[in-house]
Nucleic acid binder design. Structure first.
Lengths: 199, 199
DNA sequence: TTTTGTTGATTGAACGTTCAATAAAAACAT
DNA sequence: ATGTTTTTATTGAACGTTCAATCAACAAAA
């Protein structure tokens, strides 16, 4: 079957299979054999394309982070109005699109959160994402709130988003996206109501 | 060394050693050998007292849940006034005491969250805790809000607490307990301000 | 002497990685 | 077009390592 230019195809297959495997049995039992079987390829191919299992896991986390960033950027790119409220709602929406709020992506996120505590490569990635969310929120809040207040609001909204998301991931009934978004919107409005910039 | 009545002592030692090991190297690398060494005993003793590694992990999660419940119950037991606001603040405080907001407990929590996605025993425990927090919040909010509003507020506050906690666990600088509590208090007050029960 | 608590070498299963072997496509030659 | 060589992609068995669990042997208290 070998054709030229398989690399990007295989990489996508394997990253997708990794998320599926984590969804099925968890990171601890997501063995290279299982992931390879899920992708319909041999186990050896993982080391060939990713240098090893760790490389595949890092690439998978990178993909998720990229998708999240793209989801936010897309919505911020086509805003009807350039108000802080509009930007902040777009950020919220992007975080709750998350390329899809699928069970497999949520489980993979959670697994990587736990794992990033002790793997420095993952920790770095996770940290970049955290700071991006916080500073995006902060710079928008700053357009209508003093610095200290903007920081407070950004921290609160970031916590609200992550908390809703975490509880959605853990809940057997899954995440109710509309309800979660409404709660985040409500919090946002209460923060903006402190200033007079309810756009 | 063998004396009678070692069981409770060994159990406490091993549960504590488990948290320490997870703090040191993560759940994935917290082997029975490492945990036993941390506790200063032989590896075999784990199977003897806990039936195996899984038993020890479940017991460790049970301990953390128990400590959390106790922290909340204690504060609710000595309230100056029997108002919803006072109860809700006690619940917040209890969640941010968490017996201690130590790095080892937070890392262990996060590891168990991820793990509970695929181990039914842990999932059951985690779910009990989740529902306890939610229904505690809900029943207090119900004292001054209509049912639907109370549920909404409970969901929001629960998400805020867990979100603050999660971000604190992930942040390299650790959790700023006072700041987190203040954000949760603020949210609480905004919810109560919707009714007229700002006690 | 019996009971209780503990050890640590051993066992077997499972894992990630490696690499010689292989197969198909691509490139080249005729 | 057709045959040949080279390149690229892939396999999967073998290897070495690591782990949890076991259990016969042992030690100290009762």
């Amino acid at each position: 079957m070998p054709k030229v230019g398989m690399e990007p195809i295989r990489r996508r297959q394997l990253i997708s299979a990794t998320m599926q495997a984590i969804d099925d049995v968890g990171l601890a039992d997501a063995t290279v054999a299982r992931i390879a079987r899920q992708a319909g390829v041999s186990a050896g191919i993982i080391s060939h394309y990713f240098g090893g299992k760790d490389g595949l896991l890092e690439a998978t986390m990178r993909q998720i982070l990229y998708d999240l960033g793209a989801a936010v950027a897309t919505r911020r790119g086509r805003l009807p109005e350039d108000t802080p409220a509009a930007h902040l709602r777009a950020i919220i929406d992007g975080n709750f699109d998350r390329s899809q709020v699928s069970q497999s992506v949520m489980k993979t996120w959670l697994a990587f959160w736990a794992s990033s505590m002790h793997k420095h490569d993952l920790q770095r990635l996770q940290r970049v994402n955290d700071r991006r969310l916080y500073s995006n929120l902060c710079s928008q809040f700053r357009r209508c709130l003093p610095r200290a207040e903007a920081r407070r609001a950004a921290r609160g909204l970031a916590a609200m988003i992550d908390g809703l998301w975490l509880r959605g991931a853990l809940a057997p009934e899954g995440l109710d996206v509309d309800r979660a978004r409404r709660l985040a919107y409500d919090y946002l409005e209460e923060q903006l109501a402190r200033a007079d910039c309810l756009a």
